[in-house]
């Protein structure tokens, strides 16, 4: 799904209740309603966008917050197709949500080679408050991140910790890649032009 208004498409994937919607809500609206509003599972997927400035580049990131229920998994391709970045979320207090991450990594490797993966360990405020609630060990999560050459962030939508950092990193990586690609293209054009000039008898 592409729109000419969006530069970088970002998709959030992960088990239901992992905290995807809260993460996006914190990033786009800078708020956390988890304390007052009961959990509402996402239906299908919700879309939001934000413009950010990175090194003088203004880019629009389009964010797809997908539903974690299993029945949507078969249809998830409509949502992640063409994504530049995927944030794979798991809940630090729920081991099964971490176990699901490998599925998404496999899925993306198979269908979206060019999609960069970012791991996101959510709800870190809960484990900071009570370390006993931690169900996913730091070392295990880091090992997985290393395995798939992904950056990993521990975030809290409640406190806002690391959330801007995560999206900033995504935007930076995108800009870096784009600048590199643009340079490559310029280079290609330059070479082509030189070639043309060399062959043109009139110059």
């Amino acid at each position: 799904m592409a729109s000419n208004k969006v530069d970088a498409k970002v998709v959030l994937l992960g088990k239901s209740y992992a905290g995807k919607t809260c993460l996006v809500e914190r990033y786009l609206k800078d708020r956390f309603l988890g304390e007052t509003v009961p959990y509402q599972n996402t239906i299908g997927a919700a879309y939001g966008a934000k413009t950010v400035n990175i090194d003088g580049h203004s880019i629009v990131i389009g964010i797809w917050d997908t539903a974690g229920s299993e029945r949507y998994e078969a249809m998830s391709r409509i949502y992640y197709r063409g994504a530049k970045a995927a944030i794979l979320c798991f809940d630090l207090t729920d081991k099964s949500s971490f176990d699901r991450i490998r599925f998404w990594i496999g899925e993306l490797h198979q269908h979206e080679e060019n999609c960069k993966i970012y791991l996101c360990a959510t709800k870190c405020d809960l484990v900071e408050e009570n370390p006993e609630r931690r169900a996913v060990q730091d070392s295990v999560a880091k090992a997985l991140a290393k395995d798939c050459m992904a950056n990993i962030y521990e975030t809290s939508s409640k406190t806002g910790k690391n959330i801007d950092e995560l999206f900033e990193k995504i935007a930076e990586d995108y800009v870096k890649e784009k600048v590199a690609a643009d340079e490559l293209e310029q280079e290609a054009i330059r070479i082509a032009e030189i070639g043309r000039k060399a062959h043109c008898p009139c110059s």
Binding site: I43, A45, G48
Partner: peptide
């Protein structure tokens, strides 16, 4: 679907 889904109120949604 509309009546039961609070989450539609937060953002534009795209659902099967």
């Amino acid at each position: 679907l509309v009546n039961a889904s609070e989450s539609f109120k937060d953002a534009e949604s795209w659902t099967p």
